[in-house]
Design a binder for these strands. Structure first.
Lengths: 334, 334
DNA sequence: CGCGATCGTTGTAACGTTATACAACAGTCA
DNA sequence: TGACTGTTGTATAACGTTACAACGATCGCG
């Protein structure tokens, strides 16, 4: 392995001068700089990042831990975070927690942390009860779904208000019997519960009485499961004219099931999702959805993290991103 | 920052003994071990990974560089690689190259490399002409699309044969005028060119004469662009009864355009994609596609990389994964 | 011409961990 | 008794980089 010392020897300078050249610091004569660069090129030298990180105590890298990298929403979120990281000269690496509380704690607390200057954690497994475990002396921003009044900065999705707007939109378009398709409502702060609260509030605001049979709960969070749930509901004779899906990902299965059953969207049933994933615009029918301003979420999360990395010590910040309702064919009136 | 030395002092042992405890090495009395562990817990000590990596010269982490993390195919690939990495106790981090040759070279050659024990690079910007730049003395597996007879192990997608099977399938279902929707055919080894070759061979095998007007080339690789291209072709009066899409991602735009134009799939036009992304099963109509055995690709890539990390020095391996044709509604005959 | 400021460069000492070699000690066996 | 084995522990010296202080040389200025 070629080290800085080899370069120094070959170029006839001290290791420190090589280091100065590598870091484009001033106070190096142009001719010396050129000679060192030439030597670096000749010997095909590469900086050893581990050594540099050790010495500097910084890695210029932040981690992004998401539940699943193969869910479109998290792919798009990752791309947005990477883009914002670049603005601050930060390298971003993505890790997967597999939706498990344990892995989220691992990402958060375990040794690996030390390879990053900070972490953006999209938490779905951790809950209010884990607040004490979040007291880490390390820059972390909690992202996305749950509400935390914890010790960490939090960038939240407008879950309840967004869901409220979505369901209100269905009601405005004439729906009165609206199904809600959710993941399991494990506690009061998971995505499904928060969005369900918005659903209920919208019904209440419109004076529509809630019917618990209209809430379909999935044990697995997937289009397959959503599709199966809709099939089962229809087979059981459930009447409905609208479906609010907790995510676009789930809506994919719902739309598919309705097509299988020969139920026309939007004529017989209107469907709306949440997340406004790229592909939703291209489905047939195109899927109405709530856009949670992913780019803003990413920008805010990175900015907050950078502040903390720089040493900001203020109280934890809670930021709820705005949302926009994207009305498309799946909720059209004709 | 609490170091191993602090623990040693507090527990009344040498730093080396703490290290031995941390790495569960033998030759430490149980009582000593317990005392050290207690001290570690008391002082809330965490290993400094940078220091350990420097000293050990290993990181137990591999990188996966993909063009775009927000394309479903790469999300799914990432998930598969992570899963296979776990089998070898390897941490996987994902980076984005933005489809640029330059960034791919950066990921490959630049300093960052040193934070990983190896790299899996899904190359779309690099070409045959860059072969010399690939002579790195570092474990790297090239993934996916292009053909390389380079100095590195290569796990290839069955591009030509898969495309051939897809187009043959269209022909068997009665299509005779088949559009091909591609990205730019920049050289002979990019995805589009390879798959296009399969398209042409299938036409030739069936005795269908090629019509160059039926090849639609996108300058941007997106559903939007694909949709626009189909609109334009139809407006120009182009007659066709089948569409072969270079990826499912592009097919999304094609299906959407056909729906906009009131052209029925599969009755008037049959459509097939490539990649067999998860959502394709749920589209209406569900999209026929070529499944390139993503899991096998991931497993093979990780295995090869692990071998190289362990020091295997044999000739570069070229592995082409098998494919499976998934016939769905978009190519059904009724 | 003398003095402080600036420039270009260097030596030294870490950063926190671990590989290596070896020391101290107890027990075993001939 | 002494040579040996095995256990438990430690001292030392790195890994490759960079912060810091300090050096001689050059320069501008009064």
């Amino acid at each position: 392995m070629v080290t800085i010392r080899d370069i120094a020897k070959a170029a006839g300078v001290s290791p420190m001068t090589v280091s100065n050249v590598l870091n484009s610091r001033p106070h190096v004569k142009d001719s010396t700089r050129a000679r060192v660069l030439q030597t670096i090129d000749d010997l095909d030298y590469r900086v050893n990042i581990a050594a540099r990180n050790l010495r500097r105590g910084k890695t210029h890298t932040i981690g992004l831990a998401v539940p699943e990298v193969d869910r479109p929403y998290f792919g798009e979120l990752g791309a947005a975070i990477i883009e914002n990281g670049r603005r601050h000269d930060l390298n971003v690496v993505i890790e997967q927690t597999e939706r498990s509380r344990e892995n989220e704690l691992t990402a958060l607390a375990l040794s690996r942390l030390r390879m990053y200057d900070g972490l953006i954690l999209s938490a779905v497994g951790l809950g209010e009860s884990d607040v004490d475990l979040l007291r880490v002396d390390f820059p972390v921003v909690i992202l996305g779904e749950r509400i935390f009044q914890g010790p960490l900065d939090h960038v939240a999705t407008p879950n309840e208000d967004g869901a409220h707007a979505a369901v209100q939109h269905l009601i405005e378009r004439g729906c009165t019997r609206i199904i809600a398709v959710h993941g399991s409502l494990s506690d009061d702060t998971d995505v499904s519960s928060l969005r369900h609260a918005g659903y209920r509030r919208a019904l209440a605001d419109a004076g529509i009485e809630e019917d618990s049979r209209l809430t379909l709960t999935l044990d697995v969070f997937s289009p397959e499961a959503a599709s199966a749930a809709v099939h089962q509901a229809v087979d059981a004779g459930l009447q409905f004219d609208g479906v609010f899906c907790v995510t676009d990902y789930v809506a994919l299965g719902v739309l598919r099931a309705l097509a299988d059953l020969g139920i026309s969207v939007p004529d017989e049933v209107k469907v709306i999702g949440f997340d406004d994933v790229e592909s939703s615009r291209f489905l047939t029918p195109s899927l109405s959805s709530v856009n949670p301003s992913k780019d803003l979420i990413a920008a805010k999360a990175v900015d907050l993290l950078v502040d903390r990395i720089k040493g900001a010590t203020g109280d934890p910040v809670e930021f709820v991103s705005p949302y926009a309702l994207m009305a498309r064919e799946s909720t059209a009136v004709r």
